[in-house]
Nucleic acid binder design. Structure first.
Lengths: 262, 262
DNA sequence: CGACTAGTTGAGGCCAGTCAATGTTGGTGG
DNA sequence: CCACCAACATTGACTGGCCTCAACTAGTCG
C-alpha cells in the first residue's frame, strides 16, 4: 500500500490548496452567475415539478465552483452544507479508513449530483477529487430541504436521489462480494459505457479518466491485475485498449462474462 | 453456488407462505394494537421532537407484524409502502442478482429500521428474512413523508436514517474492497459486539443468529473459510466458539487485527 | 536530458476457494 | 427411548486466482 498516498491526497504537481481555490471562485461567482438552464441535473431533481418549484431550485443555485484536475471539492470531515451538481468534467469519491487505507467509492459524471453522503450527518463521509477540470453547481442543502417541505413532489425527487445512491452502493457490494476480477472489470466497463450513452456520447468508444490503480481501488483489485485484464480482453478480441482509450468491440461477449460463470 | 437456493428462498421446514401470514396478522392487529412506547425505534426517528410530533409517529404505527424464523417480510420487487421498526428478533436482508447469485447485505436487530432501500423507488430492492421469530412495527411511509413536510426536525431525523444506511454500506464496501478474510470476520464480530452492547446485552458473549454460510455471504467469503477462521481465532485465544455461541476473550487483540496489517 | 508517473509483463508465492470426508446438532417418527 | 435424517459445521488436501515483487517501456514536464 505504499502508493496509497497518491490516492489519499489526490494531489498532483499542479495541485493548489483546496480551500483557497474554492474561496476565490465563490467570490467571483457570488450572486452573479446562476444555472437557470442546467438541464443535466434537472433530469432528476426537477422532474415533474411546476414552474414555480423549478424557479425555486434555480434561485437556490447561487454559486458555481470550478476545479482543476486533482483538486478537492470536499473532504471527509468537512462540514456538510450543499450538494453539488456536476456541470462538466468528472470526479472520484474516496473513502478513508482510520488506518490509512483508502478506496475509490465512485466515479461521477456530468449531470450527477454528489455530496449526498453528508445528508443527515453534519459532515461529509468521503472526499471528492476532480479527475479532470470540472465545474459544479452548488445546491445549498437547507434550501433543498425547505423546498422539500413545501413540495411533496420535490420531496420525492430528493428521496429518489438518495435511493439511487443506496442502489448504486448495493450494486458495488454485489460486485465486490461475489464477482471475480474478470467480471468486475466487465461490469465497470459496461457501466461506464451506459453512462456515456446516457450523456449522448458513444457507448463503445471512450476515454478513461482514471488510472489503472484507481480502477483497481474501485473494483477491489490491484493495478497489475487491471492491466493484465485489459491486455487479455484485447487479446480475446473483446475490446481495443491503448492507454486510457477504450473501444468496446464485442459488447455481447463482455455481457456474457457476467450472466453466468463459464 | 448449489446451496444458493436456501439463502434465496429463506424457506425452512416450518415455512408458511409469506403473504398469507402477513395478511392474517395485519387483520388481527388492525387498529387495535399500537406501539405507543416503542422506545427502541424512538432512538432515531423521534429524537428531539415535541409531544405532538411523537404522537403523530405513534398514530402512524397502526399495525404490527409477527414473523416466524425463515419467513419473509418483503421481497425484492415488492411494492414499497412502509418502513419497519424491529421490536424483537432479528433478520437479514438479501440482494439477488439477475444470474441467481445472492448476497447477504445486512443483519438487523431490535431498534433498527429496515426497508429504507425502497424509499424514493417504487419497490424494495432486497429481501428481508427473519433469522428467528420476530416482531416489527409498520411505519407507512406516506405518513412519515407527510410528517417530514410539517416538521423540519423530523425531516432531519429521516434524512439521518438514510444517511446512516449509506454510511453502513460504505463501511461494507471498504470491508469487501480492502480487507482480508481475517479482518473481515474480526470486523463482523466487533460490529455485532457493539450492537449487542447498545441493546444492553453482553458485548463479549452472544449467540450468532446466522449460519456460517450466511456470515460468509455477508463478508464475501466461503463458509469453510469462516469456519476455519473461527477455529483459528479460538486456537489463538482470541475467543471461544461453540457452534453459534461466541465469547470474545481478547477484544483488544481482535481490534489490533484491523488497525494495521501485521 | 533526467526525473517522474503511468502502464505492461513475467515469475513466484500465498490466501482463499474447491472438493470431499466426517462430525455434530436438533427435530421426527417408529 | 432410539434410529434416522437433514442441516449445519469442521477439517484436510489440493488448486488456482490474485497479489507481490521486479524489470522494463512510454510519455510528460521542467
Amino acid at each position: 500500500m505504499q502508493a496509497a498516498a497518491t490516492l489519499q491526497t489526490g494531489r498532483s504537481y499542479r495541485d493548489i490548496p483546496t480551500v483557497r481555490t474554492r474561496t476565490v471562485l465563490r467570490e467571483i461567482n457570488q450572486g452573479q452567475v446562476k444555472c437557470p438552464t442546467c438541464k443535466l441535473q434537472d433530469r432528476c431533481l426537477s422532474e415533474g415539478l411546476d414552474a414555480e418549484a423549478i424557479r425555486a431550485i434555480n434561485d437556490a443555485m447561487t454559486t458555481r465552483i470550478r476545479l482543476r484536475k486533482g483538486e478537492t471539492l470536499f473532504r471527509a470531515g468537512d462540514r456538510f452544507a450543499s450538494l453539488y451538481a456536476i456541470r462538466s468534467g468528472s470526479c472520484k469519491t474516496v473513502l478513508l479508513s482510520e488506518d490509512g487505507h483508502d478506496q475509490v467509492a465512485g466515479y461521477h459524471m456530468p449531470g450527477e449530483i454528489i455530496g449526498t453522503d453528508g445528508i443527515g450527518a453534519d459532515v461529509h463521509g468521503c472526499q471528492a477529487i476532480a479527475l479532470e477540470d470540472m465545474e459544479v453547481c452548488v445546491l445549498p442543502f437547507e434550501r433543498l430541504a425547505a423546498l422539500s417541505r413545501q413540495n411533496g413532489r420535490f420531496q420525492h425527487n430528493l428521496h429518489r436521489l438518495l435511493s439511487r445512491e443506496l442502489a448504486r452502493e448495493r450494486g458495488l457490494m454485489m460486485l465486490l462480494g461475489t464477482m471475480d476480477a474478470e467480471q468486475r472489470l466487465a461490469t465497470f466497463l459496461l457501466d461506464l459505457s451506459q453512462r456515456y450513452r446516457a450523456l449522448g456520447y458513444s457507448s463503445c468508444e471512450f476515454v478513461l479518466r482514471m488510472t489503472r490503480e484507481e480502477i483497481g481501488s474501485y473494483l477491489g483489485l490491484k493495478l497489475e491485475t487491471v492491466s493484465r485484464l485489459f491486455s487479455r480482453f484485447q487479446r480475446e478480441g473483446l475490446l481495443q485498449v491503448q492507454g486510457r482509450e477504450v473501444k468496446l468491440l464485442d459488447q455481447i461477449s463482455v455481457k456474457r462474462l457476467l450472466t453466468c460463470s463459464d
